[in-house]
Design a protein around this nucleic acid. Structure first.
Length: 300
DNA sequence: AATTTGCGCAACCGCTTCGAT
DNA sequence: GATCGAAGCGGTTGCGCAAAT
């Protein structure tokens, strides 16, 4: 026996929403809120739609602060950075960009940004020291904050870092100590040393980074003083002036692994970009030098 | 002008996670 | 701790439109 359907599919409208339906949903939510129950909402609002469909329509289209299209270069960079770091967790990425939805970012990535990257048209700014920086002048980032310097509890959960969570689910002090420690060595915005927690889909072999961290550290050094960061999961973007040096050892390339070029996953994509980066130093695309062997070091 | 092809995006599907009981 | 319903999420699909032929 299969899973029970979330709604009576025979009695709900499907497909594109009409302007009337949009108005009904918008008016209802503006008046009553979602009531914390999307399943019941369409019935209350008088809509012949599935609750999930209503939720999606509201979150991705009708919400008043939604932006569509017109992604800026800075947004491109943020998306690239996070994709490199955490993969296709679009909701986490969307949380960093004011007015953007996960669906929008996902579509943008799949249809445009990925191609842009492959063409080498997206890149973080590079300093003369071959460091990667981002421009902090943007106002598109979520409320001027660049979050995820320290992962939220939800992110810790998502990463499977149960060690970092107390039994009651709150972030443990050891977790924060660990993350503050990382802050002193690593990139202040992204948890890139957690790359070892992500498999490398599509690679012919997958090295076990987790059991050999002494020799295989992905690391980043940062010029930013971060020791004063609070346990808040975000800090003002305008205060950031970090310059980040990427270095890698023990990665796919070091071990002579050959990525397939189907780009099934983030690491495939960025591994693929490495080759472009090497052949075009000037136009090194976003994180193209991540796998570069020019600055191998074991930090920590 | 008609047809085909490719692209972008909204919406759907089904699985996972969360929270209440 | 087990169960169940709802929410959340990422992958996929399908439609509409524009460009190419």
């Amino acid at each position: 026996m299969g899973r029970a359907p979330c709604c009576d599919k025979a009695n709900v409208n499907r497909g594109p929403w009409s302007p009337d339906e949009d108005n009904i949903l918008r008016n209802f939510i503006e008046k009553h809120g979602t009531g914390g129950n999307w399943i019941a909402l369409p019935r209350k609002a008088g809509l012949k739609r599935c609750g999930k469909s209503c939720r999606l329509r509201w979150l991705n289209y009708l919400r008043p602060d939604i932006k569509h299209g017109g992604f800026t270069e800075e947004e491109d960079n943020v998306i690239c950075s996070f994709y490199r770091s955490i993969g296709s967790r679009w909701s986490v990425i969307a949380a960093q960009l004011q007015g953007r939805t996960d669906n929008d970012i996902k579509n943008y990535w799949n249809t445009k940004l990925k191609k842009k990257l492959l063409a080498g048209k997206v890149g973080l700014n590079k300093t003369s020291n071959n460091e990667i920086t981002t421009d902090s002048s943007t106002s598109n980032l979520n409320s001027g904050q660049f979050s995820a310097s320290i992962p939220s509890e939800a992110e810790a959960r998502a990463y499977g870092n149960s060690d970092y969570l107390n039994a009651n689910g709150s972030t443990s002090s050891s977790y924060m100590t660990e993350m503050n420690h990382r802050q002193n060595y690593d990139y202040p915005g992204l948890i890139l040393d957690q790359i070892d927690q992500f498999p490398l889909p599509g690679l012919m072999e997958v090295p076990d980074y987790s059991t050999s961290t002494a020799n295989n550290n992905y690391s980043m050094s940062s010029s930013q003083e971060v020791s004063s960061l609070s346990n808040s999961s975000s800090f003002p973007m305008e205060n950031m002036s970090y310059a980040t040096t990427w270095s890698g050892k023990g990665g796919a390339e070091d071990q002579g692994l050959v990525p397939d070029l189907d780009f099934d996953g983030p690491h495939d994509l960025f591994s693929g970009l490495t080759f472009q980066a090497k052949s075009s130093e000037e136009d090194a695309p976003c994180f193209g030098n991540f796998y570069s062997t020019t600055s191998l070091s074991n930090s920590y």
